[in-house]
Design a binder for these strands. Structure first.
Lengths: 244, 244
DNA sequence: ATGATGTTGTGAAGCAGCTCACACGCACCG
DNA sequence: CGGTGCGTGTGAGCTGCTTCACAACATCAT
């Protein structure tokens, strides 16, 4: 386990504040008070530095993880060094549920993409808990369905669309993801990260973004992209290739 | 609904024989007898001709479907005519569970890839049934996890691998899928179909397959591919690109 | 300041895979 | 039997994207 022991904070001091995030999460919000109390006993907070590995592809799936602050990168990498980002998990979201629920190995790597606070819920205590709470199982079904829709979308885009289409699609999905946040149109990702999400070279991505920025569809900042005009992007993502 | 009324067979005559398939399915096999009896009342059998549409992307997800005989193609298509096959569903398997479970629109098209017999389970009766059977919910969680692993694999392959890698991966996954069947190494798909699964042109696929067939790794038949040597393909699928 | 490190921007050259344009064989059917 | 499809096989050219090789700039620790 990459979450080393010395990083674990004493649970009691954060029970009220940090667990509030889990309490508010769609998965757990309908739980009654004492069930949640029981759950809280299995939760271990941890703090991670940027770049720290949380788990790797092939590891046994021993824990479900919730992000309190920072973002976590879910990715896979090929032996020849290329890597692909499957998802970015932000504050208030959870990940790692697949391996926990089916007991198989992890399908991807999880890495702290910035300094992070996370909550770790151990599988051994958690699985029986889910079984004892049928409503919770239904919530997980919904979560898994949402994930499946997300990855199906990705397959669709990657197979059917060319560069402009994929990039537009990625930008749209990213703006929708945290439309909860205040400034929803600013996406805090580097062009390198986007290129890995989309599966094309950083240079190509840059050129396309630059072309769009001259049309004022997007504005490029350092480490971020601001979407100014959503409609033309949706146009490009929906219908294939008219480009440039 | 594309399943037209005149194709529906009188339920009683098939109760014993055809429903046996569902009874044997991992999802339903642990159900006790009278629960299954109750479920059986919601099942409508249907027969489809090759090419018939079962549902289309965007439709409301009103039913869960099981394949009794034949194969069903799950695919998506872009406005410009290209299309991608996400999955092929064979006898004894079920599909369409995502839209049924989360109540959203269908994410892909389903088409009869050969003449088919199917069983249609209506959402309205089925959802409460799942809620009343916590064990069944856990089974669906496992199914969804398996699907998620399948599509994640697809994303991984499509983004990270070149043509030989993707093709090898597709062949391996197809042989594993129906290793239950007798002659597991013979895959009954056309090269056109494989090209749509893999997201590359039919011609490119043909050339690669032909190269492998001269090495006796595969044998090409009319409308089918026989995998002779699995190991070199696994080699290519695992490590990227040495090719040819 | 002064590097060190990471992000962005850009052009030239190369190539993997696509498109197009065929020919051939197999299978089904009137 | 001789069509009429549909699946397969193959080459020539085109192109979108990658790779490579940089330069400029932001950010941060020292």
């Amino acid at each position: 386990m990459a979450v080393s022991q010395d990083k674990i904070i004493e649970p009691r001091q954060v029970t009220g504040s940090k667990f509030a995030m889990l309490r508010a999460h769609p998965i757990f919000c309908d739980l009654d008070a004492d069930a949640f109390e029981q759950l809280a006993r299995y939760i271990k907070p941890a703090v991670l530095k940027r770049g720290a590995s949380i788990f790797s592809k092939g590891d046994p799936g021993n824990s479900l993880i919730a992000v309190v602050s920072g973002t976590v990168k879910i990715s896979i990498s090929s032996p020849d060094g290329r890597s692909a980002i499957l998802n970015l998990i932000g504050p208030g979201e959870i990940f790692g549920e697949v391996a926990v629920l089916d007991g198989q190995a992890r399908t991807a790597d999880a890495t702290a993409n910035s300094n992070c606070e996370i909550l770790v819920i151990d599988r051994r205590e958690f699985l029986p808990f889910v079984r004892s709470q049928p409503a919770l199982a239904m919530k997980f079904i919904e979560l898994l369905c949402a994930r499946l829709r997300w990855t199906s979308d990705q397959v669709e885009q990657v197979i059917l669309q060319d560069l402009p289409g994929r990039l537009a699609g990625a930008l749209i999905r990213l703006t929708e993801r945290h439309k909860a946040a205040k400034d929803s149109r600013t996406i805090a990702v580097t062009q390198q990260e986007i290129s890995e999400m989309v599966g094309m070279s950083r240079e190509s991505i840059n050129k396309q973004l630059r072309a769009w920025s001259t049309r004022n569809w997007v504005r490029l900042e350092h480490g971020a992209i601001v979407v100014l005009e959503l409609e033309p992007l949706q146009e490009i993502a929906g219908t294939a290739a008219q480009d440039d």
